[in-house]
């Protein structure tokens, strides 16, 4: 459905999007993840034919976004981040107008508008002026507009931005519902949003695509170490020494306490050391209250990638290098 190759966009010397390549198959729900200003919106604007790329190719449904932009525009529904609407129009009026622009035949127009009004829950406000609507309703109006002509591809830029938690949940459900019908590309900077809605994630940072895959495979693919957390009652120094002596342990941090000491451990990813750890603690006669492996989250990955980049500004982040294993990285786990 989407085919993007070496896409570059420069604004006045600043490279907003830098050689992005990806493709989206029909029926996928793809989450575009990245911090603000990472290049998500720019990429989406190029795909929706708002402006052309500086270099590279973007194709939607086999049509080039530059040379066949009319064909592309007919096939997509696009909701920009700010959800621009005409405040002086009534909801239904606006949807009818947009349906007409998007080529919904006259006979089907009323039906199409009715359908999107009910499916996006706008029934109660259909006669209201858009300017008087709440943020949530505006977002729904924007969504309704994007789908009124049953597009093959739906591009939603930050569809939940600025909503309260209740509205976010509603919009998210709506998106899930939509995802069953069309191919969907949505962007967000909120991590669990993609985890909840997307079947695949494109992680973009500083204009570059840094990772892509299902939420699980992403984390798996980028895991560079296994982390464990133990709580042990015993002489702290001795426990520390014993744990450090276990083979394959690459890092350890000890937060001393009067009674139960907390230990964070890192090891090479190849082996699960939990049995070994338990055996060591219990074998030395110390008490073990807790032992768990700390799974890496998407958020960890996100933070890891962006921090790496900030450490080496300007450097290309084409692949993720393992973080250096240090004895006392305090950033390991705010749970």
């Amino acid at each position: 459905m989407i085919e993007v190759r070496d896409l570059v966009k420069k604004y006045a010397g600043v490279t907003a999007v830098d050689r992005i390549t990806f493709s989206v198959e029909k029926g996928e729900i793809v989450g575009f993840l990245g911090k603000n200003g990472a290049g998500k919106s720019t990429t989406m604007k190029m795909l929706s034919c708002y402006f052309p790329p500086t270099a590279g190719v973007a194709r939607v449904a086999g049509f080039d976004c530059v040379t066949q932009s009319m064909e592309v525009r007919r096939r997509i529904g696009y909701m920009p981040e700010s959800v621009p609407l005409y405040p002086d129009m009534r909801v239904e009026e606006y949807l009818t107008y947009r349906a007409r622009l998007k080529g919904v035949p006259r006979r089907e127009r009323a039906h199409a508008v009715n359908e999107v009004v009910s499916s996006t829950g706008l029934m109660d406000v259909r006669r209201k002026l858009i300017g008087s609507l709440s943020k949530g309703y505006r977002q729904r109006t924007g969504l309704a507009e994007a789908i009124v002509h049953k597009p093959e591809l739906l591009i939603l830029d930050e569809p939940t931005a600025g909503l309260d938690p209740g509205q976010i949940r509603q919009v998210r459900e709506l998106i899930k519902e939509l995802g069953k019908r069309t191919t969907l590309l949505l962007s967000t900077h909120i991590l669990n949003e993609v985890e909840l809605t997307a079947t695949r994630i494109l992680l973009i940072h500083r204009g570059r695509l840094v990772a892509s895959g299902t939420p699980g495979s992403l984390v798996g693919g980028h895991q560079t170490a296994r982390r464990y957390y133990l709580e042990v009652r015993g002489p702290g120094d001795a426990v520390n020494a014993a744990l450090q002596a276990i083979p394959n342990v690459t890092g350890l941090s000890w937060s001393p306490a009067a009674d139960w000491h907390g230990f964070k451990l890192e090891s090479v990813p190849e082996f699960d050391l939990r049995a070994e750890l338990a055996k060591t603690v219990v074998g030395n006669g110390w008490d073990l209250r807790e032992l768990r492996e700390e799974k890496m989250t998407l958020e960890d990955l996100f933070v890891q990638i962006t921090r790496t980049d900030e450490a080496a500004p300007g450097g290309g982040v084409t692949q993720i290098r393992p973080a250096p294993v240090e004895p006392a990285p305090a950033a390991g786990g705010p749970a």
Partner: peptide, 12 residues
């Protein structure tokens, strides 16, 4: 995927 099309939109 098919082979990349020539750059449709370049600086030139």
């Amino acid at each position: 995927m098919t082979a990349p099309a020539p750059a449709a939109w370049s600086a030139q």
